[in-house]
Design a protein around this nucleic acid. Structure first.
Length: 413
RNA sequence: GGCGAGGUGCCGGAGUGGUCGAACGGGGCGGUCUCGAAAAUCGCUGUGGGUCUUUGUGGCUCACCGGGGGUUCGAAUCCCUCCCUCGCCGCCA
């Protein structure tokens, strides 16, 4: 959530910044300004009445006429208050649907076409045979079972079996251990959260269709561990000397993938449920951009340890997520697709989420924290990359050295 | 799921209709004392909003004692409802 104070003070600047993300947002700002004006007028009026009422009440114990005056004030007040109670949720909802403003260092652009490649690690491998897509490798190795998954749960689900399940588990442990070594505190968070939490991190109110909900209990399945990790310190004021707070968690992620019907229908790339190891940092405004570089490097170091080719791109203004002020995506190489695919997204949300979640920090003065999050890493896609990049002519797959202690075998065959 | 107890400021804990933004204690911050520290002692110490502004760690004002609603001239205090925490019983990985 943006600070309404800033919108009020310099609406044109807010519009200019937001229209880099989405030009249609200018109207939204206009509406917000309008409602905010109305709201303040109503608040002032009702406050005046209340002040009058309070002073009359003080003498009312032995003054019957004061009592009558108060009754008159009361009906006026009720009118104002009912107007306010209609207006305030509307204003709030509008404000909650305004995305974060891009940082000035974010490259301008309309879509992912305009993302800026920053660096690459390792050449894509060359094969002296036709490399297979991961789903073919996995099925023939007997470690993926898509058919039975669709019988049981429908499309975009998979059973990992035998060494497939073990490989996934090895990756999770490997990633968590690396993160822990770097100072992240391991957390195992709840996988079901309240709507207000998703509102806090920015998934709601705009992206309801993306979420699985348990209506009876008014809870949602998390689409990423970012949600419960970032919300861990909701409604708290943290001491600045305890910053940065660095958290890591493995969780499954649940996404409905509405609106991506045709995309990535085969394989593990786009599933309704996937494993991810996430990192989150809570910092001061002064250090958050430095920390964005840090979490990106931390995520990259996992791919380096696994020897998987990747590149890092800076998202353009038009491709930035709702809550993010600046994002680096890490994309790994998939030989069967001949292109890079996202495996991590590292974002600085500045105080956008902290304001929604009321996470404050304090040394002399109190202010909102900055929050960052990054995947380190998406496990399923990493698993795909291992199968595809390290596949052999005979259909076996070499396991990267660093992972072997976790997996227990040098080769998958 | 059933019954019982309870939710008050940074913490503990009073307060059962007006003078309560809230006693008292602890903590924190500042002063005195001290070579210094401790002890003692004095003072200060919530958040959010509106408005004014000679923009000052400013004035005035409103709201907030788990959330929402109600009674009343007036609610932390009474009533309804929801949520949460703790205890016991039941069920259960």
């Amino acid at each position: 959530m943006l600070d309404i104070e800033l919108i009020r003070k310099d609406p044109e600047r807010a519009k200019r910044a937001l229209s880099k993300k989405d030009p249609s947002l200018e109207d939204l700002i206009e509406q917000i300004l309008e409602l905010d004006k109305d709201r303040r007028a109503l608040v002032s009026q009702s406050q005046e009445l209340r002040a009058k009422r309070n002073s009359l009440s003080k003498i009312a114990s032995n003054d019957l006429s004061a009592r009558e005056q108060v009754l008159a004030l009361k009906s006026e007040l009720e009118k104002l208050e009912s107007e306010l109670s209609k207006l305030e949720p509307r204003l709030r909802k509008l404000l909650l649907s305004v995305p974060n403003v891009p940082a000035s260092s974010v490259p301008y652009g309309k879509s992912e076409e305009d993302n800026l490649e920053l660096r690459r690690y390792k050449e894509p491998p060359r094969f002296d045979f036709e490399p297979k897509p991961h789903w073919e490798i996995g099925v023939s190795l007997g470690i993926f079972d898509f058919e039975r998954a669709s019988k049981v749960s429908g499309s975009r689900f998979v059973y990992l079996t035998g060494l497939g399940a073990r490989l996934e588990r090895a990756l999770i442990n490997f990633m968590l251990d690396l993160n822990i070594q770097k100072g992240y505190k391991e957390v195992l968070p709840p996988h079901l959260v309240k709507p207000e939490i998703l509102e806090g991190t920015g998934q709601l109110p705009k992206f309801e269709e993306e979420l699985y909900s348990c209506e009876r209990d008014n809870l949602y399945l998390i689409p990423t561990a970012e949600v419960p990790l970032t919300a861990l310190y909701m409604d708290e004021t943290l001491d600045e000397k305890d910053l940065p707070i660095a958290l890591t968690a493995y969780t499954p992620c649940y996404r409905r993938e509405a609106g991506s019907y045709g995309k990535d229908i085969r394989g593990l790339i786009r599933q309704h449920q996937f494993s991810k190891v996430e990192i989150v940092k809570i910092t001061t405004p002064e250090t958050s951009y430095e920390e964005l570089e840090n979490i990106t490097k931390d995520a990259e170091s996992i791919l380096q340890a696994l020897e998987i080719p990747y590149r890092v791109v800076a998202l353009s203004t038009g491709d930035l997520g709702f809550s993010s002020a600046k994002t680096y995506d890490i994309e790994l190489w998939l030989p069967s697709q001949g292109r890079y695919r996202e495996v991590s997204s590292c974002s600085n949300c500045e105080d956008f989420q902290a304001r929604r979640l009321r996470i404050k920090i304090k040394n002399h003065k109190t202010r909102f924290a900055h929050t960052l999050n990054g995947s380190a890493l998406a496990v399923g896609r990493t698993l795909c990359a291992i199968l595809e990049n390290f596949q052999q002519k005979d259909g076996s797959v070499i396991i990267p050295k660093a992972l072997q202690p976790y997996f227990g075998l040098e080769r998958l065959s």
